[in-house]
């Protein structure tokens, strides 16, 4: 019984028993080794579900639109489960809204190049952090070499060079907001980008506005980022967005103690929404 068969069988049972109103997984895409998310509510479609090493998308955020229809069944690996924890801790959904089928993740292969995706080489939690049942056994995976290697590489640049580096990044951004729409931490009802009356950020596409959007997004999700790497994967311009997120995570860990966000439902408050009297004092 491969993980895929277990998932299919369990999905059919859950949907038939009515315990779950809809089930989220992956299905085969049109091209070789391509997968695309699949949301089913009819048990007969359960056979379309696939689980292989090409399941690229993280599914957590779909639950937000499906909860009004009833309980949602979901296949969760490491990143999906942390996305679900993030949604629960941010009170977007409740724990009983979802039924989680955990499965260990060996790492996803890029269907074009054949090597593991960048986000999977850097993944440190490939087994689900919470789940109702396991569809396959956990997969051991050696921890990546150095979590903040790319951050340090940018920090070593000289100041003018770094400034030009980030200006070239912001010059490429086309403001399609795919990074915001895929991120499980980005769940505001009305994003500051869409608040046209307040006009925080204009609609024109120039370096200044792109920097405003980029920096604001990092500051909004910095301490809650689950490092799933989806923002980098979905960016049509391949901007290295994780370099910004990881920089904030590295500083948070250095300054306020090691904190791994979205690991369990009852974890402590994120660093930026709490304080400590004995914090480091730099501004005296």
């Amino acid at each position: 019984m491969t993980a895929q068969d277990t998932i299919r069988a369990r999905a059919r049972e859950l949907l038939e028993s009515g315990e779950v109103a809809s089930f989220v997984g992956w299905e085969a895409g049109r091209f070789a080794n391509q997968t695309t998310p699949l949301i089913i509510s009819d048990p007969a479609d359960a056979d379309k579900l696939v689980f292989n090493e090409y399941c690229v998308n993280t599914l957590a955020k779909y639950v937000r639109d499906l909860v009004p229809r009833g309980k949602v069944g979901l296949v969760v690996r490491g990143c999906d489960s942390r996305g679900i924890v993030r949604l629960i801790v941010d009170q977007v959904i409740k724990r009983e809204d979802v039924y989680l089928i955990g499965v260990g993740c060996p790492g996803v292969i890029d269907r074009k190049s054949g090597e593991p995706l960048k986000k999977c080489t850097e993944c440190r939690h490939n087994n689900p952090v919470i789940c109702d049942e396991m569809a396959g056994d956990e997969v051991a995976k050696d921890a990546p070499a150095d979590r903040f290697a790319e951050v340090r590489e940018v920090e070593l640049m000289a100041q003018p060079e770094r400034s030009r580096y980030f200006e070239s990044i912001y010059a490429k951004c086309i403001r399609c907001y795919a990074c915001r729409d895929v991120c499980p931490c980005c769940t505001c009802r009305e994003c500051f980008v869409d608040a046209r009356r307040e006009n925080w950020v204009g609609k024109q596409n120039n370096v200044a506005e792109n920097r405003f959007y980029g920096l604001t997004r990092v500051m909004h999700i910095g301490d809650r980022c689950i490092e799933c790497g989806e923002c980098e994967r979905v960016c049509p311009m391949d901007l290295p967005l994780m370099k910004l997120n990881r920089k904030v995570i590295q500083d948070l860990n250095d300054l306020f103690g090691e904190f791994e966000s979205s690991m369990s439902l009852d974890e402590g408050p994120e660093p930026l929404i709490t304080y400590d009297l004995a914090d480091r004092e730099e501004f005296m």
Binding site: L38, Y62, L66
Partner: peptide, 16 residues
């Protein structure tokens, strides 16, 4: 319904 449920509503497809 089946098509739009998995769309993220980002602007990538319209800008490329």
């Amino acid at each position: 319904e089946n098509l739009s449920i998995k769309c993220l509503n980002c602007g990538t497809c319209t800008y490329v």
